[in-house]
Design a protein around this nucleic acid. Sequence first.
DNA 1: GTCTATAATTCGATAGAC
DNA 2: GTCTATCGAATTATAGAC
Lengths: 207, 207
Amino acid sequence: MVSASFGDTQTQILDAAEQLFAEQGFGATSLRSIIRAADVNLAAIHYHFGSKEKLIVATIERMAQPIVQAELKQLAAVQAEHPQPTVEAILHAMLAPALEIVYHGQGDRGLTQARLMGRCRTEPTIEPIGAQAFAKSSQTFLTALQQALPDQSTSELTWKFDLVIAMLIRVLCAADQPNAILQDNSPAETAAAIERLVHFAAAGMKS
Amino acid sequence: MVSASFGDTQTQILDAAEQLFAEQGFGATSLRSIIRAADVNLAAIHYHFGSKEKLIVATIERMAQPIVQAELKQLAAVQAEHPQPTVEAILHAMLAPALEIVYHGQGDRGLTQARLMGRCRTEPTIEPIGAQAFAKSSQTFLTALQQALPDQSTSELTWKFDLVIAMLIRVLCAADQPNAILQDNSPAETAAAIERLVHFAAAGMKS
DNA sequence: GTCTATAATTCGATAGAC
DNA sequence: GTCTATCGAATTATAGAC
C-alpha cells in the first residue's frame, strides 16, 4: 500500500469522516454527507474502505494511534526519571496528550480529534472499537496506578480509573462550550486546564 | 409482549420507548422497533405524540421529573437540618436519587431509567432536551455548592460540577458492566457505591 | 382511537462502463 | 481508480377507512 499523500482521496475521505463523526456521531452521519464534504464519489468510500464500519474503524485508529503513543512515551519518561512516580505524574502522562492535541492540531483539527475521541465512548456499537484502539494505553496506566497506590484493591482502582477517563471524555466533548474547563486553545490555558484536571482526579484517586 | 397488555396505549409506547432508547440510544432506535415492542400500531405514535422528537421529549421528561423532585427534596431536608451543609451532604443529595432508582424501580425498570438518564448526555441532538429536564436541579445544586465552597470561583465550581455529573452519568451507563462501581442492584451495595462516589467526588470538589 | 396502506425520503451497498 | 445509475431495504410521516 502506498502511503497517503496530501490531498489523496483516502485522506480526503478520512478528514471529512473525522469531522462529521466528531460533530454528529457515527450512527447519525451518513456516507452521503461524508462524500459531499470530501467532494468525492460515493463509490470511492466502498472502494477504499469496504463499508461504513471499516471506515469508522480506520477513522478512529488514525486518531488514536498518535495519542496512545504520546501517552506511553510520557509515562515511560516519567518512570525513567523516578522508579515510583506519584499519582499526579502518572495522571499527567495519561491526560495531557489527549488535551494537548486540541491546540497542537492545525486549525480546528485538534478540537475535532478531541471530540472524536470523546465520541468513541458515547455509542454502544462503537465503544468496543474505541476500547480496542486505546487498550494498550489503558492496561499500561492501570498497572502504573496499581503500583503507585498499592493499598487500593484492583476493583477499586478499576472503577476510579474508569471515572477519570469519563472526566477526560467530558472535557474533550465539551471543549468548545462556555464555562468549560478548557476556556481556549492557547498553550498556557491548555496547560493550566491539564493541571486543574490532574489535581481534581488525583484527589479522587487517593480518596 | 406480556407487559404491553397493561396500561393505556400512551403508557405502552412510553414503556417500550424508555427501554429501547436506553439500550440503543435515541437516533439508533426506530419507531418501528418501538411499536413492535409495545404491540401497538405505527400511527398510534404520531397520533399520541406527533413525531419521534416529541416522543423523545415525553420519554425523557417522564423519567426525569421524579428524579429531580427527589434530588430537590433531599437537598431541602439536608438544608433544613444544617443551615450550612457539608460538601459531602450536598453531593449525597445530588447523586443518591439517580442511583437509588436502580433498585427502587420494579424489575429492570430502574436500570433502564438509569441508562436512559445517562444516555441524555451522549447524543448532541438530545443533550439540550436532557439539560432542560434537569435544569432546575442543576441550578439549585450549583448554588448550594457555591455556598459550601465560597473560596472557589463560579467558573471553577461550574466545571467541577460538570465533571461530577459526568461521573454520575458514567456510573449509570456502566451499571451492568463488570468491574463497575455498582456491582449489583442490592440496596446495601447501592448505598455503598453512593458513598464511594460521594467520597471520590467530594475530594475533587475540594481540591 | 385504531387500523391498513402508502407516500416520500434516505440509507448502505453494488454492478458495470470508462 | 473514478464515475453513473440503481437496487433493496429501511426510515418518518400521512391519508383515509372503520
